[in-house]
């Protein structure tokens, strides 16, 4: 399925960097965990609807050799058209802060470069991928079809396997982390959440 999609979008992509990414071999996924590279990403958006909302900021951390390497951490703020509105309170961002942001076209090359030979990891991947695909397609004519893992899905399956009755909120990032004894985090920005997701991912991996 993934290969088919990649083949499809490879032929329609206008951006050479993305084409190279879509042409890469996926053989790295067969390697042991310690030899794989993961890009754990989080977005802050103005809405939960990928078709309407705007990305406010985008951040990722990289896992290599089984460790999160914070030297490769990135945190971008994007310019938005509609302003932040209500969710500013939530994300502790203001319009002034966003004025210092940059357009997505400037961020995309870094993102595509980071994703080379890597698996994308998010907490609830469909949402983040939905946003990214809409933005990427707008600028390249293609989708960002890369191997992806979802810490939320993994947690859901694990709890399901153990026949745990789920309560609302049990799959939220903080609740998932607590089950692995990971500390609670107060701040709420894209980088902190990306880091929190990456730590959760390592904890999950250690139990597989």
């Amino acid at each position: 399925m993934l290969r088919l999609q990649r083949w499809y979008w490879r032929r329609r992509v206008r951006d050479p960097a993305l084409r190279a990414l879509l042409q890469q071999s996926l053989a790295f996924r067969q390697q042991p965990f310690e030899h794989q590279r993961f890009v754990v990403l989080d977005l802050e958006t103005t809405s939960l609807n990928p078709q309407q909302g705007e990305i406010v900021s985008i951040a990722w951390v990289v896992i290599e050799k089984g460790r999160i390497d914070l030297q490769q951490a990135r945190h971008f703020h994007l310019t938005t058209e509609k302003g932040v509105g209500q969710s500013a309170v939530f994300h502790q961002l203001t319009d002034t802060a966003l004025e210092q942001g940059q357009p997505f076209t400037q961020v995309m090359p870094s993102l595509i470069a980071a994703l080379a030979n890597s698996t994308l990891v998010c907490h609830h991947t469909p949402l983040d991928q939905g946003f990214l695909n809409r933005y990427v397609r707008q600028h390249t004519g293609a989708l960002l079809v890369v191997p992806a893992l979802d810490t939320l899905q993994r947690e859901y399956r694990r709890l399901h396997r153990h026949k745990v009755a789920l309560q609302p909120g049990d799959l939220r990032l903080g609740a998932c982390r607590a089950r692995y004894g990971l500390p609670a985090l107060a701040a709420h920005d894209a980088l902190t959440d990306a880091l929190a997701t990456a730590e959760l991912f390592l904890a999950q991996q250690s139990r597989m």
């Binding site: 951040a59 914070l70 951490a73 990135r74 945190h75 971008f76 703020h77 961020v107 870094s110 985090l185 701040a187 920005d189 980088l191 902190t192 880091l195 929190a196």
Partner: peptide, 9 residues
Amino acid sequence: PRQPEISAV
């Protein structure tokens, strides 16, 4: 953005 402040850490 290449040297972000990793406030949580």
